[in-house]
Write a protein that binds this DNA or RNA. Sequence first.
DNA 1: GGACAAACTTGACCTAGATCAATGTTGATT
DNA 2: AATCAACATTGATCTAGGTCAAGTTTGTCC
Lengths: 242, 242
Amino acid sequence: MEINFRCGECPIRHRAICAYCDEPELERLDDIKSYKAYSAGETIVWAGEEAPLIGSLVSGVATLSRSLKDGRRQMVGLLLPSDFIGRPGRKVAPYDVVAANDVLICQFRVNKFNILIDDTPALERRLLDMTMDELDSAREWMLLLGRKTAREKIASVLVIFARRGAELQHSELGDGLRFEVPLTREAMADYLGLTIETVSRQFSALKKSGVIIMEDARHIRVPDYVRLLNEASDDSDGGVIA
Amino acid sequence: MEINFRCGECPIRHRAICAYCDEPELERLDDIKSYKAYSAGETIVWAGEEAPLIGSLVSGVATLSRSLKDGRRQMVGLLLPSDFIGRPGRKVAPYDVVAANDVLICQFRVNKFNILIDDTPALERRLLDMTMDELDSAREWMLLLGRKTAREKIASVLVIFARRGAELQHSELGDGLRFEVPLTREAMADYLGLTIETVSRQFSALKKSGVIIMEDARHIRVPDYVRLLNEASDDSDGGVIA
DNA sequence: GGACAAACTTGACCTAGATCAATGTTGATT
DNA sequence: AATCAACATTGATCTAGGTCAAGTTTGTCC
């Protein structure tokens, strides 16, 4: 199936790399882009691979990860709709990009994009803002990886999933919310620097304490959102980050 | 003591935010900057503080860190000469910035800088490149925090310190190199997601295995650089990152 | 040069999370 | 509706690194 729509109708138009572009600029982007679908589990970019992809995640969830020689693996980023993939001008990808779900990507012709960004301040400025946001998230994740307990780690991802769920359904974050866990236990373990077994055990523990209700392994209800937040031990000051 | 020199004579001229600027642009920067010295241990910016500083680290070492409510602390960045401090347009600092050494900073008038960067593409482009490099380092650190053992973590910081040492003395990385450890054991523990005691023990262990020779707690010699690299378990592919 | 504090090391013990090993659940395929 | 393969859970045990408690070394300030 051939997917295609013009930038003007794109669901991520106002949050992606193109957010600051005006109509003429959008048209130039339209010329060098195409949508491509990947299915769950598919590796979109291999670390070490040449001519990596440049584009935006339109829908679904993808993961960025890196491994040590002996196979220990750490996720270094979670890509949600509107997130940018790739680094202009880079020849070799430093991370694996894997579709966690079925995923749709707006891909740009690499060479054309590298030229376009050089004389489109709106693109460059947006990329700067997005990269700085990413850096803030990466640093917040460093705090999680270095200092949080397994239980706090699980509560923290659940908060992320809850936010994403609320956004997808255009609903409010609050008590009684229900959302999907878009990653396998293995992917979560790689994200949190834990093992599968520990992830599973902490889900069970949070269930037992009544913090979450598990409809099944992939669907969670949260009777008391503030309690979940507290379990995550996030900064009181709300982590002012932008 | 009043420190001051023109941008043209600045030691970090070709690697800092100003790297891509031409002469006229440098002059505009000259007008809005001043050098400020901080002494070891001093907190330069408090997380949560308003009107945070914008500037470049000229000499010394500073740390970026973030804490949980109960005091657990994680370093989220190590600032070396030429690194940029702050985020244009941000009102509240999300991290503590602390001088690990005596430090010299080239500070910009915040409001002036925010305006200047908006119409100086050379600044904006440089900031984008630097931010992307920071993001890559942050992600590499995530791999360390999530998946490396205590011994690998210590070997990894030592490699960083060795690189910095070689750069400061304009010498080559190789066998028999000698360098200074610019952080306390406590700062290293916060950087690596460990405790002071574990840091200390791993130093002793690496000494006992002959990987390092400790002249004193802060001065290290490395008889076999490749061996140290191996102890850090870094990617075989050299971690192509730029 | 003695006293004090900060930084560092070392030992004994404990525990959160890893590892090893089944077992259960779900959903796709025939 | 039986089979198979992912995916997930649970239990028993082990261990890397944390915690608690002394010491030691270093440098600074009268």
